[in-house]
Design a protein around this nucleic acid. Structure first.
Lengths: 325, 325
DNA sequence: TAAAATGGTTGACAAAATCAACTAAATAAT
DNA sequence: ATTATTTAGTTGATTTTGTCAACCATTTTA
């Protein structure tokens, strides 16, 4: 028997990108963006400052109270080079060096008012250029480019790491495209995690469709969580007879779990239930969704029923959780 | 009357990106990617060649038979600088200059076998580094980053211009997530073009759901067109009694029209119908979808019925087109 | 046919970046 | 406690990279 056992998920190994096309694409992107940035670079907009100069100013501004080494590491430039840049800036009254009392070798750096003003001007020049670059695009395309850039940055910056809750936006108005997106999210997540095929997606479509038939914006609410333009999670509250409510479609993409998003969504849902003065909220789930159960109990839900059922070719227990408001 | 007339679409003006956050995000991306590229740059992987050198080699390789000016314009570098680089390459036996017979001032450039080999080595080094960058990401994330980069490049490169047919991939296997995506595409396109609200999306969901109930992979087929990971168009053929077939869900995102994608999809659909030996194909549409009609007739469809109807709060004619195979 | 423009080269330079040797302070090792 | 090692930053010398203006030769325009 044990020979037949295979791990549900193979141990995290190096994910070698086999796809030569992918790599070629990224190389092409690098090439392309090198030119793109090259245009910005040389002699930052005809000022007497170089791109590196401005990068240093920015680094000092943002990472308040960095030392020279901090700047050096952030930008990956030569120590001697930086030393000279900083001395020049000091002479020009752009940065101040404050000797550290606890370490006589270092000083922390700050921008003077003049330095801040200069950086601000540089940023505005840069912005103007970006605006020119965007003005031929429609607003929707502009938004897509922003999302795409944020996604690239986020994926490269925190490789393999968890996304940050701050990057997730939650809204609750339903817009065209949302219904399809909801169905899609379900289809993709359940395929990945339980191997459900497209029939499950079809089933979700049916439930969403049924829900929409009785949808009442005043009594029902759907929260959608998205990150860099992608839908990554959701939760919904549906009104039921006798001032009851049902919690449905509580779902997070796997990579967005464990960062407090589930709790944030649940909080919003419960807050809504209080506002609506529902008497109680119930939800239906299966014992297969083990992890979600702990969130339910954490938020005061209590298991009130557990019935064996065969769903999607799987033998499992359909469970009912309930919470008095 | 004429005073009341407003253009359906306002004249294409500059789309000023009002959103300061968007611009700040792009500036941040530039900053981030400057560092990212900076890591690749200096002394291209400890070789004796600089990043600029490699860029020149690449440009000569790819744009076969360019002149020096061509390279200069592509890379945006100084003419004198390039002149020296090229002379050095010539001396090292990396590039060849072939004087143009029709213009005594210019020569076109080619890489020698040695030059090609060098560039190849450089590319491999670059690839290795990209692989290292990606290996911590899961395949799905790797794919997303590739899509995002292609999207950025495509949007910045051809601002406002039409996408290229080569960038569009068409497939016909249905995977989890597709159904939702199909619904979403309909919801978004019809909202944008006809102002349909979310009820229309709901209706699409119903039709897709009905279709899936009788779906037979052997007799029915759905083609999905996507570009940089986004679904941009589709078409479907459904089998009907008596060796008939219905063409449904023929839809293109507005920015992907007029590049031959519609024709390509239609060709695939017709080819399938021939293979399946359907006797005839019909489709139902409305007079509102004016432009599509011309595609239908171009492909041999003939209007066989036109019935006034009230659909989605609009008075229009439901039309039937038919084609004998 | 002269003037202007184009493609490319060259010399002189300036700016950007690197390298290695160095000081001074902090930390670790004996 | 003293010495060795490391760390933060500086400095001089140098290389690499890129710019500018003047220039030639050819082609195009007036």
């Amino acid at each position: 028997m044990s020979q037949e056992t295979t791990p549900v998920k193979p141990a995290r190994e190096k994910n070698l990108p086999q796809d030569a096309r992918l790599i070629a694409g990224i190389r092409q992107f690098n090439r392309y963006y090198t030119t793109q940035l090259g245009l910005l670079q040389q002699h930052f907009f005809d000022s007497e400052y170089s791109l590196t100069d401005v990068r240093v100013l920015y680094e000092v501004q943002v990472n308040g109270k960095t030392t020279a080494t901090g700047v050096r590491e952030a930008l990956g430039i030569d120590a001697g080079y930086l030393s000279r840049i900083l001395r020049r800036f000091e002479k020009q009254g752009l940065v101040l060096k404050h000797p550290l009392p606890e370490d006589g070798r270092s000083s922390y750096l700050t921008l003077t008012a003049r330095g801040q003003k200069l950086l601000h001007t540089m940023n505005e020049l840069s912005d103007k250029q970006i605006r020119r670059m965007l003005e031929h695009l429609e607003p929707a395309q502009q938004a897509r480019i922003g999302d795409a850039m944020r996604l690239v940055r986020y994926l490269l910056k925190a490789p393999g790491g968890a996304p940050r809750l701050e990057d997730v936006a939650v809204r609750h108005e339903l817009r065209p495209g949302d219904l399809g997106n909801i169905v899609r999210l379900h289809g993709e997540v359940y395929e990945k995690e339980y191997g459900y095929n497209i029939e499950f997606e079809q089933y979700v479509m049916e439930t969403i469709h049924d829900f929409m038939k009785t949808y009442d914006a005043a009594k029902d609410r759907v929260w959608l969580a998205s990150c860099f333009g992608e839908m990554v999670g959701m939760i919904a509250i549906i009104h039921r007879p006798q001032r009851q409510a049902q919690l449905r479609w509580f779902l997070l993409r796997a990579d967005f779990r464990g960062i407090g998003l589930g709790r944030a969504l649940m909080d919003k849902a419960m807050e809504f239930c209080r506002q609506q003065q529902f008497r109680s909220v119930y939800l239906l789930t299966t014992n297969q969704q083990g992890k979600a159960a702990s969130i339910y109990t954490k938020h005061g839900f209590i298991k009130t029923a557990s019935v064996p059922e065969t769903l999607w070719g799987q033998d499992l227990y359909e469970e009912r959780y309930e919470k008095k408001m």
